[in-house]
Write a protein that binds this DNA or RNA. Structure first.
Length: 601
RNA sequence: GGGGGCGUGGUGAAGUCAGGAGUUCACGCCGGCCUGUCAAGCCGGAGGUCGCGGGUUCAAAUCCCGUCGUCCCCGCCA
């Protein structure tokens, strides 16, 4: 059976007089008694079809979201009855034949977008949710974005290569998602956190340019921009240095933005070093759609008598200030900021308000000299009404606290503006709160200077870089280590002893010993990029079937218990308390409405 | 692991602070009318264990305790 020869959204005045066969959904029905208007929607759009119930009696039984096929003649709408909101609004299709391909039950929520429907309900009925313009547009945009990525990279000579998704667990960084092996009883695969080591092996193998739309898995807690499983554009190139990577990624991003937004981006993108980003914006992913820079006041307070400041400076710390502009804040509101700063790890926070006469109101004003107060307002360009926040602490703490206030009080414009930015020169390692060194990017990142890394690892700079868009980290990459000796050195600094390094990464380090080309690469979070381009507040909106914050899929009910024989085959025995909890029905997930969602007669 | 917001017919909301009969509004749903509507309109109707459990009270959607779900955030995310 032929269902259609014309798409609803494509019907135009030029088609008047043609007989068309269309198929789609009855988005809206306006039954006038003697004539029935139906908005027929398919993936291409909407067209109004007109039905005379005496000619087509089935029309009387139509409800919303029936899947139907109609045959009819395209006609110009009577003068005055055009709908100029619709691309098809000057025509309509006069139906001669209507087939209900599939009726619909009453809907659990309305598909118009007048109100925000609870997300849990949307996810439980995601197949209906994606009939709505919002998710439908996001799914399309994502496809357009991925197509632009593939096209750009194929044209530049890259090979698209799949790497395994059942791989060796090399725990470090994120928690692995584990999969038990039946054939190797008691052993486990891990799902990849990224294809990192496989793409490096591809470089060893002589694949000089690789990319993949790669599914990745990290078993950490969810956020608006983080899911258990996600997709990255993963890219790697041999005989590449940092500049080759940045240029290639820029060309991909420019193509994506052109195709998704219809906007040409200027490249190359601006760059900041990690150090600059931290000092001026208090974060390694600054949103540069607005200014509000953090200023260093350490020199100004070098000889201050105010102990909170002098103490911090004497301890090797800094004094930094942020002008958050005019604010309507009460004394208690300002004091609440002090608590927020403490919660974020600072010893304290000093606030100042510039008075109309240029004087400064602050709980600590009496401890500061006139020159110091003057210096603050001058350095921060604070004018009457402006509120100033000052933190004296270790450099990292001051940056982080003020960086958060900057984001909180800064006012970025709408999502129309796209501010891409490279942050380069990340450190090789960062120190944990317990003083251990961990890889800032990952342990396969090349240092700028291997000797220097050996001497003072804590301050060594790497050849790692991040791509930032509107204050969000879109992705990161690095020049990789391509010799076994440097790789072993990094493992050593990370406190991984040679035996452990051999057990976990021996297979990889061995590969580096066979003429590995210098190589470098990058990975971009696709949902993050598309969600920002689409102006969405979270990545679930651009994921067709996302999970909730507790890792549950409300539609299918996964994860779910499995049969005992399945566990037995895998040699798995649930803890008695886990088994009891399951039997008691705890954590069964999902409280969305069950059964007939409509009630009614 | 921690902090915060939310949970009221199918959907969205008001009611909760300050206890007094499941009250209200919009949409949807069901039935009827209607030949130019397009968020159609008009008339009529059905539909709720106020997430769940316990407590206080003469009386709980409302106050208290616990719990579940969901969202945002901190930790975590090499």
């Amino acid at each position: 059976m032929k269902y259609r020869d014309t798409h609803a959204g494509d019907v135009r005045a030029a088609d008047v007089g043609r007989t068309v066969l269309m198929a789609g959904w009855t988005a809206r029905i306006r039954d006038q008694g003697g004539v029935v208007f139906v908005d027929l929607r398919d993936a291409s759009g909407v067209v109004q079809v007109v039905i005379d119930p005496e000619v087509v009696p089935e029309a009387v039984a139509l409800k919303r979201e029936f899947c139907v096929s109609v045959r009819g003649e395209v006609a110009r709408r009577p003068a005055g009855s055009e709908n100029f909101e619709l691309p098809t609004g000057d025509v309509e299709v006069v139906v001669s034949e209507l087939t209900v391909l599939s009726p619909s039950r009453a809907l659990p929520f309305q598909l118009d977008e007048r109100t925000d429907v609870d997300e849990l309900v949307r996810l439980k009925y995601r197949y209906l949710d994606m009939r709505r313009p919002r998710v439908a547009a996001n799914i399309r945009a994502r496809s357009v974005a991925v197509a632009a990525m593939r096209r750009t990279l194929h044209e530049a000579g890259f090979l698209e290569i799949e790497t395994p998704t059942l791989i060796k667990s090399t725990p470090e960084g994120a928690r692995d998602v584990l999969v038990p092996s039946r054939l190797q009883l008691g052993d486990f695969y891990a799902l990849p956190q990224s294809p990192q080591l496989f793409k490096q092996l591809l470089m060893v193998g002589g694949v000089e340019r690789y990319f993949q739309i790669a599914r990745c898995y990290r078993d950490e807690d969810f956020r608006a921009d983080r899911q258990l499983e996600f997709t990255q554009l993963d890219v790697e190139g041999s005989f590449w240095d940092q500049e080759d990577v940045l240029a290639t990624i820029e060309s991909v991003v420019v193509a994506v933005v052109q195709d998704v937004r219809g906007v040409g981006l200027a490249a190359p993108f601006p760059r900041l070093t990690y150090r600059e980003a931290m000092d001026r914006y208090g974060t390694d992913k600054p949103d540069l759609r607005f200014g509000m820079e953090i200023a260093d006041l350490t020199a100004l307070f070098a000889d201050t008598g105010f102990k909170a400041f002098s103490g911090a400076i004497a301890g090797g710390g800094v004094v930094r200030g942020l002008n958050i502009g005019r604010q309507d804040m009460s004394r208690s509101g300002l004091d609440a900021l002090v608590d927020d700063a403490k919660a974020a790890g600072a010893g304290g926070l000093v606030w100042m308000v510039v008075e109309d006469d240029g004087g400064v109101r602050s709980p600590v004003a009496k401890f500061l000299s006139a020159e110091e107060l003057e210096g603050v307002t001058t350095t921060l360009s604070a004018s009457p009404g402006d509120h100033v926040l000052i933190v004296a602490d270790r450099s990292r703490v001051a940056a982080e606290v003020l960086g958060r206030f900057r984001v909180r009080f800064g006012s970025p414009p709408g999502h129309d503006e796209l501010n891409f930015l490279w942050v380069v020169d990340f450190p090789v390692f960062e120190e944990t709160t317990t003083g251990e060194l961990v890889a800032a990017h990952h342990p396969f990142t090349a240092p700028v200077d291997v000797e220097e890394m050996g001497i003072s690892p804590a301050t060594a700079i790497s050849r790692a870089y991040d791509l930032v868009l509107n204050g969000a980290e879109l992705g990161s990459g690095s020049v990789r280590i391509h010799d076994a000796a440097t790789q072993r050195k990094v493992f050593e600094i990370l406190g991984i002893n040679p035996e452990e390094a051999e057990r976990r990464f021996g297979w990889f380090v061995e590969a580096l010993g066979y003429g590995t080309p210098p190589h470098a690469g990058f990975a971009i979070g696709i949902a993050r990029l598309v969600s920002i381009l689409q102006g969405e507040p979270n990545i679930r909106e651009v994921i067709p079937f996302p999970k909730t914050q507790t890792g549950v899929d409300p539609l299918t009910g996964s994860p779910s218990p499995v049969e005992d024989h399945q566990l037995a085959e895998l040699g798995i025995d649930l803890l008695p308390e886990v088994r009891a909890a399951r039997l008691a029905g705890e954590h069964t997930g999902g409280s969305a409405p069950e059964g007939d969602p409509q009630g009614g007669a």
